Simulated assay, not measured.
Amino acid sequence: MSLETAPATRASLAQRPVRRHRRTTAIAIITVGAALLSVGGGSYAYWSTQTALTAGPVTAGDLNLSLGAGTWTLKGVLGTAQPVANLTTVKIVPGDVLTLTQPIDVTLVGNTIAADLKAEVGSTFTSGALGSNLDVVLSVASYGTATSANTYRLSSANSGAATATLTVTFKPGTIGRAGATQSVNLNDIAFTLTQASS
């Protein structure tokens, strides 16, 4: 009995390495396939589609401000306004009013645009005895009433040319010799146009 089964047992033992080898080969093929999928993005293709809008283009508006050549006058407490040819030669005293007539050109393009036009002063107007005794006031008659000090709220309806008036007044109530011989830089005054956000 044992003699008859011995060959079968030997045959089974001989076939085992072959099956193990086949299993190992299959695992290796699967591993290589997974690696190739990983290199290729590791994803399968799914259905997709795309349809473009037919709305057409949308275009940005614009905001800009330019200044023309302005003219200055000087009016004292006892006199009438006189043209100023050269500001660097002017010596102001309490009660004097320097007036700038300033052409401006505003560009406001946009369906919902609103912007604030301001006259802003720099450091020489906010420090020193002379600067602290000067009042700067912006007025633009065609824009109506200012919304706050030296500020006008504009819309696209205001786009185009206008004339601004800027006055620099040496306060008549200045005490003693405050500001005597001092100077301010009129280039420290700037017109700004900023899109409104509130």
Rank of each mutant, 00 (worst) to 15 (best):
S2Y: 05
L3C: 07
A6I: 14
A6P: 08
P7M: 05
A8S: 15
A8D: 13
T9V: 14
T9H: 10
R10S: 09
A11V: 04
L13D: 11
A14L: 12
P17S: 09
P17M: 03
V18W: 03
V18H: 07
V18T: 07
R20D: 14
R20Q: 15
R22C: 11
T25F: 12
I27C: 07
I29Q: 10
V32T: 14
G33V: 13
A34M: 12
A35L: 15
A35R: 04
L37E: 06
S38E: 05
S38K: 08
S38Q: 07
V39C: 09
V39N: 08
G40H: 01
G41D: 06
G42L: 00
G42W: 02
G42D: 01
G42Q: 01
G42H: 01
S43K: 08
S43D: 10
S43P: 00
S48P: 02
T49Y: 09
Q50I: 07
T51S: 14
L53C: 05
T54S: 11
T54P: 01
G56T: 13
P57E: 09
V58K: 10
G61N: 07
L63P: 00
L63T: 06
N64Q: 14
N64P: 10
L65R: 08
L65N: 09
S66W: 04
S66V: 07
S66P: 06
G68T: 10
A69P: 05
A69C: 03
G70S: 09
W72E: 00
T73Y: 00
T73I: 01
L74K: 07
K75L: 02
K75S: 09
G76F: 01
G79E: 10
Q82P: 00
L87K: 01
V90E: 05
P94V: 05
P94Q: 08
T99L: 06
T101L: 06
T101V: 11
I104D: 04
I104G: 02
D105E: 13
V106Q: 05
L108I: 13
V109K: 11
G110Q: 12
G110Y: 08
N111L: 15
I113E: 11
A114Q: 15
A115K: 01
D116F: 02
L117Q: 06
L117G: 08
A119R: 02
S123D: 04
T124P: 03
F125C: 01
T126E: 06
G131P: 03
N133G: 05
D135Y: 02
V136T: 02
S139A: 15
A141S: 14
A141E: 15
G144A: 13
T145C: 10
A146K: 08
A146W: 06
T147Y: 11
S148T: 15
S148R: 09
Y152P: 03
L154A: 03
L154G: 00
S155G: 14
N158F: 11
G160L: 08
T165V: 14
T165H: 13
L166G: 00
T167G: 02
T167R: 03
V168I: 11
F170H: 12
F170I: 03
K171S: 00
K171W: 00
P172K: 07
P172T: 11
G173P: 07
I175N: 15
I175W: 14
R177F: 12
A178Q: 11
A180W: 12
T181C: 04
V184D: 00
V184L: 03
N185Y: 11
N187D: 15
I189L: 14
I189H: 05
A190W: 04
T192F: 06
T194M: 09
S197Q: 11
